[in-house]
Computed example of a mutant assay.
Amino acid sequence: MDNLQVRIDKKKLEKAAYVLKCLAHPMRISIIDLLEQRNRLTVTQLQEVLKIEQSLLSHHLINMRDKGIVSTHREGKYIYYSLTDTTLTEIINLINRGKAF
């Protein structure tokens, strides 16, 4: 027990908890998984795959954007969403391999 210590900085722990709270929804995890596969997608493209209403999808995307998980880029009439930090996809990989849960 002498060498036992918290190895993660308190600020990093707080940020991780903040992001993980946002990710704690199956639809948001699915969005991350899709954005990992394609780098960037429009709301319409995400909606086609996820098969949910546009308003509900937009709610999730706005929440994820506000938390800094996704970013947006406008090209003409289209707004593309992409991941701001691809290390989040490691969580998806752990879930998919059945190692995390």
Rank of each mutant, 00 (worst) to 15 (best):
S55E: 09
V43D: 09
D9A: 10
K12V: 08
R74I: 14
T42V: 01
Y81G: 08
I62R: 13
G68H: 15
L35Q: 00
I69A: 07
V43L: 10
R28G: 09
L94T: 12
G76H: 00
R65P: 01
V43Y: 04
T84C: 12
L13A: 03
L88P: 01
Q54C: 04
T42D: 04
S58E: 15
H60V: 06
H60S: 09
L4D: 04
C22S: 10
L20H: 05
V49S: 12
D9E: 06
Q37W: 14
C22N: 14
R38I: 14
K67G: 01
S55R: 05
K15Y: 08
T42F: 03
Y80D: 07
N96P: 03
F101P: 07
K21H: 03
I91N: 08
M64N: 04
T44N: 11
T87M: 12
N96L: 06
H73I: 07
F101L: 12
A16M: 07
H25K: 12
D85A: 07
N93D: 07
K15N: 11
I92T: 11
L13P: 00
H25P: 01
E48N: 02
R28Y: 11
K77Q: 11
K15T: 07
S71R: 13
T42Y: 03
H60T: 04
L88Y: 12
Y81N: 12
M27N: 13
L57C: 06
T84Q: 09
H25G: 05
V70S: 07
I62K: 14
V49E: 13
G98P: 05
K51L: 12
R38D: 14
I79D: 08
K67P: 02
L34P: 00
T89Q: 12
L41E: 04
K67L: 08
F101R: 15
L41K: 02
I95P: 05
L61Y: 07
G76D: 00
V70H: 03
N3V: 05
I69Y: 06
K12R: 08
I62N: 13
L57N: 10
I91S: 12
L34A: 01
K21M: 04
L50K: 04
Y78S: 12
T86K: 15
G68V: 15
K15L: 02
V6I: 11
Y18P: 02
K21E: 07
R28M: 12
G98V: 09
K21C: 01
I62V: 14
Q45G: 05
E36V: 06
S30L: 04
S82G: 13
L34R: 03
L13H: 01
E53S: 05
V49Q: 13
I79Q: 09
L4A: 02
L46R: 01
R38Y: 15
H73P: 00
S58F: 15
A24L: 03
D85K: 11
Q45F: 01
Y81W: 15
M64G: 07
I52Q: 05
L56M: 14
V6A: 10
T72E: 15
L23F: 07
L35S: 06
K99S: 09
Y81E: 10
